[in-house]
Design a protein around this nucleic acid. Sequence first.
DNA 1: TAGCGTTATGTCATATCAAACATAGCGAAT
DNA 2: ATTCGCTATGTTTGATATGACATAACGCTA
Lengths: 112, 112
Amino acid sequence: MSFKVKSKIWIEVGGQEFLGEGKVRLLKAIEQTGSLSKGARSINMSYKKAWHLLDGVNRCAKKPVTTNSVGGKGGGGTALTPYGKSLIAAFDQMNLNCREFLDQQMKAIRNL
Amino acid sequence: MSFKVKSKIWIEVGGQEFLGEGKVRLLKAIEQTGSLSKGARSINMSYKKAWHLLDGVNRCAKKPVTTNSVGGKGGGGTALTPYGKSLIAAFDQMNLNCREFLDQQMKAIRNL
DNA sequence: TAGCGTTATGTCATATCAAACATAGCGAAT
DNA sequence: ATTCGCTATGTTTGATATGACATAACGCTA
């Protein structure tokens, strides 16, 4: 049968979401474009929503995930800190491992 | 840090959700109460919503997950088929394994 | 036959969430 | 001083999901 196991993982701190798929996608887009607004546009996300997501991340984290500058050359921008980069790497790795694990699990119960 | 990895898994068939956490909770409630309406009430879910969930499950499944009778002694009722019971058992097992796996994963990256 | 509790649906109001629109401030460059 | 692109917010509208209410049919029981 065409059963498919899907999964979603996220990291909570203090009961609220700290990092999830949407936020990771946004962080990657920021990394590639160098700004929050460009990053948001590149993944068809409204600036407002993107700003809220990023705000949530930086609120939960004790070490800053991005550095934001306003005004100046190019109007400013947003860049990931090394900590931020390590976060998305860890998340991706864990997500990948989880999916592989679930695929194995699914194979184990083909007798549905 | 008080990081916590959370996860949600569900099973899709043909692109739409076949079984998820809410549906499993409902199926369990049905199993315990012997009826859809009682089961829904017992988990504070409206009958309408419960009916839609169950309808979705039985629509996707090729083997029936529940047997529904209307009228008669007690007004009728809903019971799980053996197939239905095996489904929720499999789902629970997979969910549990997934959570254990993620906990292990989390331990492996304490250096956040 | 009248009543009861259940399955099975439809309709309509509402509440929650996301998008659209609007605006302000910043700081370098011209 | 003016312009430009960006960060940073508020407000207002719109969509979408949820809940409340209503109703019909069914078959046993009394």
